[in-house]
Every structure is written in structure tokens, then in C-alpha cells.
């Protein structure tokens, strides 16, 4: 399909959506980080786990639209850990969360014109 508008125009429009979505993305990330902190201190509960699971699910479903395919995969891995008791390991989750935050923050330093959708 030929792109109706120039690709630069489409990318600029998507970049605007990213800018307005970023606070929500960071808020979802913080929700998972809070759960991890509670897990590490032995104070986690089911409600915070469900909130973290929902946040990871939403990140997994949206980050790839903004050229962050790898971050989507990382969020899906976190969601999967939160779904299964036997795979819930604080150390592994901390590592994935660090990676996820780095990928999101790294995007900020990129030229929007260079964001590549897979």
C-alpha cells in the first residue's frame, strides 16, 4: 500500500502521540517497579501484583507501536513472570526492568526520524 502521506509526516504524527503517551508509559513502569520493591522487601500482595501484571501487559501491547519492539518483548517477559508463581524471581525481574527502563529512556535521545518500526 502506498503511504497516503509522506513517511516523515506519519512519523512526526506518531512522535506526537509518543510524547503525549510517555507519562502513562513511565507511570506503568513505576507500577511494576513498586511491585518489585515490595517483592524484594517481602511486602508484596496480590493487588499490587495484579496492577503490575496489567501495567506490563499494556506496555507489551503498546511499546512496539513506537519503534520499541525489543521493549515490548521485555515487558511481555515481565508479564509472563507475574502470571506464573514458579517464575517470579525478584533478581531476574529487576534485570528486565532495568533493561526496559533503559530502552525507553534511550528512545528519548534518538532523533525521531531515526525511529524504525520493525
Amino acid at each position: 500500500m502506498a503511504v497516503r502521506q509522506g513517511e516523515d509526516q506519519v512519523r512526526a504524527a506518531l512522535e506526537k502521540v509518543w510524547m503525549t503517551s510517555k507519562p502513562e508509559v513511565l507511570s506503568r513502569l513505576a507500577t511494576i517497579e513498586r511491585f518489585l520493591a515490595s517483592l524484594e522487601s517481602g511486602n508484596s500482595n496480590n493487588a499490587s501484583r495484579l496492577a503490575a501484571q496489567s501495567a506490563a501487559h499494556r506496555l507489551s501491547g503498546s511499546l512496539g507501536m513506537f519503534g520499541l519492539g525489543e521493549a515490548s518483548t521485555c515487558a511481555a517477559e515481565i508479564e509472563s513472570m507475574l502470571l506464573h508463581d514458579d517464575s517470579l524471581q525478584a533478581e531476574k525481574m529487576a534485570e528486565l526492568l532495568r533493561d526496559l527502563r533503559n530502552m525507553i529512556e534511550r528512545r528519548e535521545s534518538q532523533d525521531p526520524g531515526r525511529i524504525v518500526h520493525p
Binding site: M1, E7, V10, S60, G64, M65, S72, H117
Partner: peptide, 10 residues
Amino acid sequence: KPFNPMELPD
């Protein structure tokens, strides 16, 4: 999800 916005219409 996530979909590629450049490919969604196709």
C-alpha cells in the same frame, strides 16, 4: 498487538 503503524492498513 503491538502492531506496526506503517503496516496496519495493509
